[in-house]
């Protein structure tokens, strides 16, 4: 079976999933996956529960926010850059208003209350 390589960036405390369990600044790991893999498959290989991540990017496009993760089935391709942020990260609305998002995220944001103005999207927001 053909494999793809995903350029994976892990920030803050998530850097521990990059190979060195002591690392807490950032880690950059090239992850090999079978062709046809999805974001959930990448999480599985990293050994990271999806609840541990917050803001997520696929090729610089916003794909998840705390409490809103429409990207688990997003297909990955060879050379994709995926970045995972820890739950203490933040991205206030005014500094992300109009950024590019994967289609699934764009749809999910529009369906939220208040059209995505908040910092977190879980029912009991804001939550760590």
């Amino acid at each position: 079976m053909n494999t793809i390589t995903v350029d994976t960036w892990l920030y803050g405390e998530l850097a521990r999933f990059g190979g060195n369990p002591e690392e807490r600044i950032f880690a950059n790991r090239k992850v090999s996956l079978p062709e046809g893999s999805r974001l959930q498959d990448l999480l599985n290989i990293l050994g990271m529960r999806t609840e541990e991540r917050g803001i997520t990017f696929i090729n610089g496009q916003l794909s998840a926010m705390p409490g809103l993760q429409p990207d688990l089935d997003h297909p990955l391709h060879d050379g994709d850059r995926v970045a995972f942020f820890h739950l203490r990260s933040m991205w206030p609305f005014q500094y992300r208003h109009g950024v590019t998002m994967i289609q699934e995220m764009q749809k999910a944001i529009i369906e939220t209350d208040q059209m995505g103005l908040h910092h977190a999207y879980s029912k009991d927001q804001p939550k760590e």
């Binding site: 960036w9 920030y11 803050g12 950032f26 803001i55 990017f57 610089g60 916003l62 705390p66 970045a83 942020f85 739950l87 203490r88 990260s89 933040m90 991205w91 500094y95 992300r96 950024v99 590019t100 910092h119 977190a120 804001p126 939550k127 760590e128």
Partner: peptide, 27 residues
């Protein structure tokens, strides 16, 4: 109580420079 502003939360731990990596990944 807010995740961003609470003690040992985002701002108290990492300061406003917590945004560097986020903005960088966003391009």
């Amino acid at each position: 109580t807010h995740a961003i502003t609470k003690p040992k939360g985002g701002l108290n731990s990492y300061g406003t420079a917590i945004l560097i990596n986020i903005m960088n990944e966003a391009g």
